[in-house]
Amino acid sequence: MAETVGCARTSGTVSGETPAEPTPPVTIAPKEIPMTARVGQKAPDFTAPAYYKGSFGPVKLSDFAGKWVLLCFYPGDFTFV
């Protein structure tokens, strides 16, 4: 028989009771960042670490204001397409 500490049921059930279905572990949803990219709307600005011509440094989209920008996402380095 499970010991109790104060009011806590350390076994999770009352003695003799069939344990209920285990509840799924709590998962923390990743930080919600709403998709804001839409044609005809301002491009979401960002700053990210980057490799550029032999050196490392941040790249900031809004630093390219006044120029056309082709922004390309891809699945990963050393992939095949």
Partner: peptide, 9 residues
């Protein structure tokens, strides 16, 4: 994404 000089997609 093609972004114009005003930052518009």
């Amino acid at each position: 994404f093609i972004i114009d000089p005003d930052g518009i997609i």
